[in-house]
């Protein structure tokens, strides 16, 4: 029976210098697999046997990790047996006396599996993004739905808590919407909702929140808008809305209830409820005062 020989291990064993990256040892299996001239082993460097991409990964991740912690496990690199060939491999590396001891395994099958995993991940990511979008949008008007508006408002209050800018909340309701549905039919009602949504989108900035709050009610949160700006916005919106014709002489009208965010207590859990309620009270007031107008909660003389 023959005595076992170390050269039979199907694993590349390499020693490189941590400073010069020169090859100081390579076992027979490695020499053959990497097409190295075994007589001139000392003339090779680490970068002669790994791909350029692997060398960046070595410099930016593997070497810093080895210098700091003494070793680096299970890293994938590409070996380059020939100029045009790359072989996926997995390496473990350990530092001892300024030398890096590498054990490297060919891992072509694992690489293929990982590639499939990456594709699956990309597919999932795209799908997730698509579905997330769907869960946030109101299908009829393409505005944000109620849930997305709540999420975005909560995120906004967190930002405002750090860096406050004047912000207004508006609840906008279409006047006599039930009548529109009854007289002109539900299809026309839907068209009116869509047209007004487009108007809202057009009149606001990308950083504002514009949502269908429910039925014929819309929520607009104006970013970086003081009381005066918001009043001007509402005046314009009444004019814009009244340009939507229902029939011959009859035009659309809307009522708006507004509330302004205060700088304090922005991260309280019921903060949104508080301001929606204020805007709702103001909206109720606008309706009570004859519709087609805006009321602000701050201006109401509540008893």
């Amino acid at each position: 029976m023959k005595t076992p020989t170390l050269e039979c291990f199907p694993c590349i064993l390499v020693v490189t210098d941590i400073h010069t990256n020169k090859l100081e040892y390579c076992n027979q299996y490695g020499t053959e697999l990497l097409n190295l001239d075994s007589d001139k082993l000392m003339t090779y460097g680490l970068f002669d046997i790994i791909s350029k991409a692997s060398s960046i990964f070595f410099e930016s991740y593997i070497r810093p990790t080895i210098v700091s912690t003494g070793s680096c496990q299970e890293v994938q690199i590409s070996l380059t047996p020939n100029t045009n060939e790359k072989v996926a491999s997995v390496a473990n590396a350990k530092l001892a006396d300024s030398k890096i001891y590498w054990s490297i395994y060919v891992a072509v099958a694992r690489d293929k599996l990982y590639q499939e995993l990456l594709s699956a991940r990309e597919h999932l990511e795209a799908k997730t993004e698509e579905l997330t979008l769907l869960t946030r949008v109101d299908p009829l008007t393409s505005l944000l739905n109620r849930r997305a508006a709540i999420d975005d408002f909560n995120q906004k209050t967190n930002e405002l808590d750090i860096n406050f800018t004047p912000t207004s909340i508006l609840l906008i309701d279409i006047d006599w919407f039930k009548k529109i549905n009854d007289i002109y039919g539900h299809d026309r009602g839907d068209e009116v909702l869509i047209t007004l949504s487009q108007t809202l989108k057009r009149s606001t900035n990308a950083s504002d929140i514009v949502a269908r709050w429910g039925g014929e009610e819309f929520l607009v949160i104006l970013n970086n808008s003081n009381t005066k700006d918001t009043q001007v916005f509402c005046q314009k919106l009444h004019i814009e809305a009244s340009s939507i014709t229902l029939s011959g002489s009859e035009n659309l009208s809307i009522s708006i209830g507004g509330s302004n965010l205060e700088e304090n207590n922005l991260t309280k859990p019921d903060i949104m409820e508080k301001y929606i309620k204020q805007a709702d009270i103001a909206l109720y007031e606008a309706k009570a005062k004859g519709r087609s107008r805006t009321e602000f909660f701050d201006h109401l003389h509540l008893t």
Binding site: A53, F57, Q76, K86, Q115
Partner: peptide, 9 residues
């Protein structure tokens, strides 16, 4: 290849 390698690592 580097981006791919990073992903796999």
């Amino acid at each position: 290849e580097l981006l791919n390698l990073m992903d796999k690592n």
